[in-house]
């Protein structure tokens, strides 16, 4: 029973949504809106699951003084304090919460994102070696596209930006579309497996 009830819910609702995408009628759209309202109402409750997990994991670390437990203290203190600041002084601009957001959260995310530049550089350095004929093609294409991005490319020859556009528009898109078709089918297949109850891992456990 523990498995069957969720399965029944999934299969019925699943087919209803498949039908919804083919039926433009008001009844169908009203059903969808009603469902969306419920999603909006229910999903915030899941936040508490996340917070509980966070407390459990880091609480255990602190309690057992597992190595680096101090970081856990900072994590929890950050969580509690940010939430407290939000509840206490509100989230308008000028409040401590917004101050934290603008001066801690924003620059830290930007920093993490900026790391990409370095990582891309080192990944490119390692990856682009003319080890074989295919790798050489990849290497040349990469250099043309990179040159096409910068004014230097256009200064060398006007064909560089044009070839760069061609590479992006033709071979790149061809490969990408092929992968996308495969992904689309894979998604459909997985959805179908779920709808038919073949795939049940998401209910917890294999079978």
């Amino acid at each position: 029973m523990k498995r069957q009830i969720p399965l029944i819910i999934i299969i019925t609702l699943g087919f209803m949504f498949v039908a919804h995408s083919f039926i433009p009628h008001k009844i169908s759209t009203d059903f969808f809106d009603w469902y969306q309202d419920w999603v909006k109402a229910v999903s915030p409750f899941a936040v508490s699951l996340g917070i509980m997990s966070l407390f459990m994991v880091h609480g255990t670390k602190i309690k057992r003084k597992i190595s680096n437990w101090q970081y856990s203290v900072i994590t929890l203190a950050g969580l509690v304090f940010t939430a407290f600041a939000g509840f206490m002084w509100g989230t308008q601009s000028g409040t401590p919460y917004m101050w934290l957001f603008e001066n801690v959260q924003m620059p830290m995310s930007a920093t993490m994102f900026a790391l990409l530049a370095f990582y891309i550089a080192s990944a490119a350095y390692k990856a682009f070696r003319a080890r074989s004929a295919e790798a050489t093609v990849l290497l040349i294409a990469a250099i043309i596209v990179m040159l096409g991005q910068v004014p230097l490319g256009a200064m060398i020859s006007k064909w560089i930006p044009e070839s760069s556009t061609w590479i992006l528009n033709v071979p790149n898109l061809a490969a990408k579309r092929a992968i996308m078709i495969g992904v689309g089918l894979g998604m459909t297949a997985t959805s179908l497996k779920i709808l038919l109850g073949i795939e049940r891992t998401y209910l917890g456990g294999g079978d």
Binding site: A121, A124, Y125
Partner: peptide, 13 residues
């Protein structure tokens, strides 16, 4: 940075 990268890639090769 792009030019540096290209330079590095060429050097590496």
């Amino acid at each position: 940075a792009h030019i540096m990268m290209i330079f590095f890639i060429l050097l590496g090769n």
